[in-house]
């Protein structure tokens, strides 16, 4: 993977290589070691090790009192995590697939997100929800969604999207240190990808995007797995002299307005790439943000969005692939944009 590392920790040149899943597991272990109030809850996270083996051996290290298999009860389980967070524990709740958070929307949206506000600032819900998400696994419509933008619509939540092992670890530690509910969307296809991960505890700042590649012709904003596809497309475009600036969005709420606007002022062109359904998604928010700002004056082409097709995620592998942005579709869109053929 060709990703510039985080400047915050880039000095750590001897960082080890871990997979994204290992990095998340390491973050959980560090937090559990340091703070006895941190507990893990979720379906099959104990001896099974989690559907994606993220919690793997944590039950052996921390025991079933702190690595708790819940019954298949998302509303109850997530709600118990909210109640525990309200009263002194720091639960990390794993949804087996982010799609199943829909069974727990009540507790996430009506309760966790709003309690602090409704109680006039007298209460806090420092819960972390881990959300394995995305398509590409052949699991079809109910196990492949990218619903992160839904939660971007909810004041009171923070919504993160790590694209590298380093960020996956740092964001989880930052989420735990944060006094409010944080949802972390982990991409299933990234779990096995590897990258440098610093030792020990460090916090990836919440709400900060990162320029992963600098360029002058066009800005692409993408997060999670789309960052990697955008970087690959950028490499190809570079061979034709098209210099793309690629921003890793990292945080959907809060969103890093400054980094995006600064880049757009420089390049004058914006392409937003995301895996959720195109309509009403992250791209709409970012486009509007640019359109409502002074950066609008710097645009010399319309803003383009690439998102998923207007359909549930299909089972057939070719249809599935065709339904979300890929390196070739990103590359083609970027070419159209620089030629202003939009």
């Amino acid at each position: 993977m060709n990703v510039q590392s985080n400047p915050v920790t880039a000095s750590d040149t001897n960082a080890r290589v871990l997979s994204y899943a290992e990095a998340i597991r390491e973050a959980m272990a560090i937090a559990m070691q340091a703070d006895p109030t941190v507990i893990l809850m979720g379906e099959d996270i104990g001896v099974y090790g989690g559907a994606f083996q993220v919690t793997l051996d944590l039950i052996d290290r921390f025991g079933p009192e702190r690595v708790m298999d819940t019954p298949i009860s998302e509303l109850g389980g997530a709600g118990v995590a909210v109640g525990a967070a309200l009263t002194g524990l720091k639960p990390i709740f794993e949804f087996q697939f982010s799609d199943f958070a829909m069974l727990a929307m009540e507790q996430i949206v009506n309760q966790a997100a709003k309690l602090r506000y409704m109680l006039g600032g007298e209460a806090a819900v420092p819960v972390v929800f881990r959300m394995p998400s995305g398509s590409g696994t052949g699991a079809a419509a109910q196990h492949s969604q990218s619903i992160e933008a839904w939660f971007g619509h909810v004041p009171g939540l923070k919504v993160l999207q790590p694209s590298t092992p380093e960020d996956a670890k740092g964001m989880l530690l930052a989420a735990l240190a944060d006094p409010d509910p944080v949802m972390i969307f982990e991409h299933k296809l990234l779990y096995k990808t590897k990258g440098h991960v610093p030792e020990g505890s460090y916090l990836t700042p919440i709400g900060k995007a990162l320029v992963r590649r600098t360029g002058s012709d066009l800005t692409i904003v993408a997060g999670s797995i789309m960052l990697h596809r955008a970087l690959e497309a950028a490499e190809k475009l570079a061979t034709d002299g098209i210099n793309v600036e690629v921003i890793d969005l990292r945080s959907i709420r809060p969103i890093d307005r400054d980094t995006i606007l600064t880049s757009v002022r420089k390049t004058g062109k914006l392409l937003v790439v995301y895996e959720g359904v195109k309509a009403y998604g992250v791209g709409a928010e970012i486009s509007a943000m640019v359109a409502e700002s002074d950066a609008f004056d710097y645009l010399d082409a319309p803003i383009l969005r690439l998102g998923a097709a207007d359909a549930p995620v299909p089972y057939n592998p070719d249809l599935e692939r065709a339904s979300v942005p890929q390196v070739d579709t990103i590359e083609a869109a970027a070419r159209r944009l620089v030629r202003r053929e939009v």
């Binding site: 079809a140 419509a141 299909p314 089972y315």
Partner: peptide
């Protein structure tokens, strides 16, 4: 359906789980 074909019960959109 499992092979993702148009002649499948869900025209290849659903697969085993649907």
């Amino acid at each position: 359906e499992f092979f993702g074909k148009e002649t499948g019960y869900c025209h290849g959109r659903g697969g085993s789980m649907h």
